[in-house]
Computed example of a mutant assay.
Amino acid sequence: MRKRSNRARAVVAVVAAAVLGAAGCDAVGGGSPGPSGPRAEAKPSPTAVWDRSPDSIAAVGDSITRGFDACAVLSDCPEVSWATGSSAEVDSLAVRLLGKTGAATHSWNYAMTGARMADLPAQVGRAVVRRPQLLTVMVGANDACRSTTSDMTSVADFRADFEESLRTLREELPKTQVYVASVPDLKRLWSQGRTNPLGKQIWKLGICPSMLSDADALDAAATTRRDTVQDRVEGYNKVLEEVCAKDTRCRFDGDAVFDYHFGTDQLSHWDWFHPSTVGQARLAEIAYRTVTAREP
């Protein structure tokens, strides 16, 4: 018991030193003919314009797309990114669509650890320079993961920034396709990660406090706080779905990432919150299914 206790304190000490040197809070996805007639001519169906085999990919978003905490403590690991990574363990969306050589030369990762939806328009602005045929979007966890629930991004602001991001894209690249991943179920990540005592000690250092603080508290106040975060995440996902639906070259994952039941094997064993390499592989699978499906 003494050896295990000493080891746990040593790991927490290493993480604490890294956290104190870092800034911010960061959280952790046609064969049928379309209708005929004037209506079909006025608004083509998504199936008619969707290319299931794009030849270049750019990724925007937050720490999940950067592979944060998947390889080492409090470090980005883009090689295991679900979107553009090169790791054979993950088999990223880029590798699945473009092959290893194509992914190495025709995929780019502009996501940033700590990013929120307000940062997305600038990321998209950098991505359009590459003129990708497919843009992947995964963002929103950090908008909910704040110090308090009152600090969370409002649904209205979230919508406005996402709409601005798509306008920025369309001004330069009207035919680029967009894959939008839903925000993960943060409450489920809490319920899974809280089973690990070391993970809960690390959470105390400031990982997604709106959801993870006082991890073992089950009183009315704690329950209300977590439910408020969960409601906001569901609101964000509704925005992603609605805004994407207005663009014939945009596909939302239908809440597939939100609905995915991440277990402890799919969570980083550094922070018990971000996806592990296994979790990144699951996100790549979800994205590939959505992008290559005949119907949106």
Rank of each mutant, 00 (worst) to 15 (best):
T105V: 11
D161I: 01
P46Q: 10
R225A: 15
A156L: 03
R130F: 10
V129P: 03
L240F: 05
F258M: 01
S147P: 04
A72N: 09
D143P: 08
V124T: 13
V243Y: 10
T290C: 08
A122W: 06
F252H: 14
V90D: 10
R7Q: 12
V278N: 03
G279Q: 12
E242K: 11
E295I: 12
V80N: 13
P33I: 02
D91Q: 05
P296F: 01
V139R: 03
S56C: 06
H106M: 07
S87G: 14
A23Q: 13
G21Y: 03
R130H: 15
A104L: 10
G199M: 05
V233S: 05
V28F: 14
V128H: 07
A22G: 14
R249W: 05
A16N: 07
D157L: 09
A58E: 08
E241R: 14
E171N: 13
A83D: 04
A42R: 14
S147V: 14
I64S: 14
A18N: 12
G254L: 01
G102T: 06
G193N: 11
M211F: 03
S150D: 15
A220L: 13
S154L: 01
F158I: 02
P44L: 07
E242S: 14
F252D: 06
S213I: 09
V49P: 03
E172V: 15
V243K: 05
G140C: 04
P54E: 06
R167L: 12
T153G: 09
A10P: 00
R167C: 04
A122C: 01
R2V: 13
W203A: 11
V90A: 03
G102I: 02
L205F: 10
S191L: 10
T290P: 00
